[in-house]
Design a protein around this nucleic acid. Structure first.
Lengths: 350, 350
DNA sequence: TCAATTTACGGTAACGTACCTCAAAAATAT
DNA sequence: ATATTTTTGAGGTACGTTACCGTAAATTGA
């Protein structure tokens, strides 16, 4: 069954093509010092024999280390979301240390564009061979991308919503569809009523993202169930009392509200208000799974969380660069992350 | 930040311990011909220096190939479930080919114990260094496991429900909890009524599995909502008309039934009966995600599928053996797979 | 035409480990 | 004391690839 293919090495190729070992090396690595004629001949033999370079040996003899740069927001910053991709990146780092791969991380405060520019400059002048970044800060980042293109440095987008044509790979979240999914889940909980979509205006960069989720939600409802409507509420004042006031007033004024959709990772922050609240059950759906959410999931205040494997996004981003830079593999241009549904009864195994 | 650790090799250890290179080699590989005293000395130095063998080099110079055996039911057999773990195993096979690792698969018909015994014998007499298997066929398999223990061959259980103490690693599905989850999902769809639990008696080995799921479901309902009850129906006759008759009769006789729980991968098989049926919506929850399910998910006949990443189970099983045999890494004894929830709106990205 | 430069090609030492042989030295048994 | 066993040292080859260093041939320029 398993054809016991003896390992075909560079030597075999050299022998078969009747050229020196070094010549094969030159062909394989596009080094200078080989005539077009011999190059063609060797390539033909390589193909015929089905030669694949041995990565173990290659890496062993290779002198230069590969450095991958990572440009992401601070962990401590804002939502804390970036902790997860970072974990995935660290996992990849550990795993790839064997391959002589270094990861250099450059983090910045989301609202500090001076710092962002500084990090970008550092990256441009660094010796990285590849880059992982997120597409949320489009303006500042164009210079960096141009530099990468010019230097032929591949880059991978993580947690990105826009498909960037020139990237090695772009890791997507289906935002619109996640809105649809949330709508579907609400619809399983009730057939008629109103869904309150809560916008928390803290980070400026998330407008597009939240917009898409909202559109997805409305699309599903329009298509499927027109006895459920949505209503948006924008919170700008984060004073605890202010939130409490406006929230409870909205719910009182709109008794039809049976679900609240929080299209970012701040569900736990809102859930605490619902804990104190008496009255009919209101279903809560949010995004991303944090330790803070557990308490409210157990109490069934938060009903569903939609989660998109943020650690895996980080891991994959680095791994795809590794596959490209070291293994010389073809890398898919686009990875779409699954939409995981988290509830009280399955979060433990997530 | 990143301390630029120069690679510490076997030579450095020899120099530091003031012994011959061969001696270090003897210690590292537990070869005979080294006194306890020097062994301790060398080990101490190894630890002090933080020496880690270079796997690339190690693998390159290693002469023997590693062969991993896989003993699983036929793909074409029964539910077709095993196609997924097999895919994961194939993915691992491709990825690990670089490391001189071969995968030998031994498949059998689930109901053919003669064939199982034959494959077990083949495995015992094979040259495998590790084994992936499923724990569902406990009786026949004990001999194989004893043989493995004796020969010091590590084995990994896949898709297993019983925790096997002697295995290198056991990949679990939280069955009970999946039943709870299904109950929770039903409970989101309706507050009162009856859930029909459909047993399809085709493969004998699944009784324990289904039993656990059922118990989980009842546990959730008892604890949370006692306006929902369950009712079991066992199908033994697989004649289409017979199924149709008994199913529709049960539904007519029990108008309170608002949900049907199919605790195996045969949902699509049942969904087709509900397609023809008029009357109130009945919610369907099943297991595992097959192509056949898509049609019924789109039509919202099947509402939820609980899925446990079967390909990843296959992949992980092989990968854990690889980590143990090649990378000499510590491997966790137990991996619990997440409970994924699949609906019409997220199956595309699964 | 002759030197200067570029290009072609062969040889070979690494990379770090595994595995082997042979002989010398040390420890143990007789 | 000698004989025997165990321990240690020294050294080499191989794994498949990379990278550098010569030299020889081809090409260029004046």
């Amino acid at each position: 069954m398993d054809n016991d293919e003896r390992v075909i090495g560079i030597k075999d190729v050299a022998k078969a093509a009747n050229v020196a070992l070094a010549t094969v090396d030159r062909v394989i690595h596009n080094r200078a010092g080989v005539s077009l004629k011999t190059k063609e001949k060797v390539l033909k033999v390589i193909k015929q024999m089905g030669y694949k370079p041995n990565i173990m040996a290659s890496n062993l003899s290779k002198s230069k280390k590969i450095v991958i740069g990572v440009l992401l927001p601070n962990i401590s910053e804002g939502s804390g979301y970036w902790e997860f991709p970072m974990q995935g990146i660290l996992k990849a780092k550990k795993e790839l240390a064997q391959y002589n791969i270094k990861i250099k991380t450059y983090t910045f405060k989301q609202d500090n564009s001076k710092e962002i520019r500084k990090k970008i400059l550092e990256l441009i002048n660094s010796d990285i061979q590849g880059l992982v970044l997120t597409s949320k800060f489009a303006d500042e980042i164009e210079i960096l991308l141009d530099d990468c293109k010019q230097k032929n440095r591949p880059y991978v987008f993580i947690d990105s919503n826009v498909r960037k044509i020139d990237s090695l790979c772009s890791i997507h979240q289906p935002l619109f569809e996640s809105g649809e999914l949330a709508a579907q889940l609400f619809n399983y909980c009730f057939d008629r009523g109103e869904i309150l979509i809560l916008h928390l205006k803290k980070t400026m960069d998330t407008e597009g993202i939240i917009g898409l989720k909202e559109k997805g939600m409305n699309a599903y409802l329009n298509e499927k169930n027109n006895a459920i409507t949505t209503k948006s509420l924008v919170l700008t004042d984060f004073n605890e009392d202010a939130i409490s006031d406006i929230l409870f007033k909205t719910l009182e004024d709109n008794p039809l509200i049976k679900g609240v959709f929080i299209p970012n990772s701040k569900v736990a922050y809102i859930a605490k208000y619902f804990e104190k609240r008496a009255g009919d059950k209101i279903y809560l759906i949010g995004y991303d799974f944090f330790r803070e959410d557990v308490e409210y999931m157990e109490k069934e205040i938060i009903d569903f969380l939609i989660c998109q494997r943020p650690e895996e996004q980080g891991y994959q981003a680095v791994f795809k660069l590794f596959e490209h830079l070291v293994l010389k593999k073809e890398v898919e241009k686009e990875i779409i992350m699954p939409l995981d549904i988290i509830t009280k009864k399955n979060y433990k195994y997530y």
